[in-house]
Amino acid sequence: MKALLWRLASLAVTAGFVAIWQIVADFKLVSPVFLPGPDRAWAALVHGMVASNLATKLAGTIEHMLEGWLVASIAGVVLGALIGSSRFMRAYVGPTLEFLRPLPASAVIPLAIAIFGFSPAMALGVIAFGAIWPMLLSTVHGFAAVEPRLYEVARALHLSRWQVIAKIALPSALPDILAGLRLGLTVALILAVVCEMIAGLDGLGQWVLLAARYFRSPDLFAGVILLGALGFVGALALDIAERRLLVWRAPTNSP
């Protein structure tokens, strides 16, 4: 009950900020060329959805983001399990991964353009390459950090290698994998936007860039609001999935 009241108060504060935004825009404290009020941004959002092709752009961004994220997730977890469960692979492949990890994923875009051209395949390759890192590294870490005694139990039970992975290592690495999935989705959204901006693929990235070029700031803000909503919904969905999948785990007070 008390938590709900705080939540409502917090919501009221947000409403207050939107009201300030409206006042600033109404009195033209900031030039309306840069800053449309929330009313104009909302009107542009509704108009874009109903009369223009904003919905198609939204669908395009969702498609790019999810495709790349799915490819990266599957490849990342499989590769991570292979590397994490083998000491040999960790010694030979691990350091190379550590070197590649800090590389900004967007830096491979020109290379991807040179190979694939301005195509959806380019976007898929770049997004998958960028989003694979959180997944891969957290899976490697999760597999490497399995409690050694569980492996002893597995040996005592004469479990096969696949049974060990499916019954012991994977559940034990699940919290790490889920953290990787969440970070990967954020990366996938950012890279989807960047690819759409550069390659002119159908999506919100292209929408906001064109809106900026023509100084149509209400359209621009409508696109930014949609991108924020997309990131919000994605994080929320993974939050719910995480709570469902990790009910067996004691709650931690991580930030």
């Binding site: 840069f34 950012i190 960047v194 900026a212 621009l220 696109g223 924020g228």
Partner: peptide, 26 residues
């Protein structure tokens, strides 16, 4: 902290590159 919760939760998911065109105009 509790009062700012919703506001921060709504702003944080906005990808930084999405704001680049806004900064470009301004």
């Amino acid at each position: 902290n509790r009062l700012m919760e919703v506001t921060l939760e709504l702003i944080r998911p906005i990808p930084s590159v999405a704001l680049a065109p806004v900064a470009l105009v301004a």
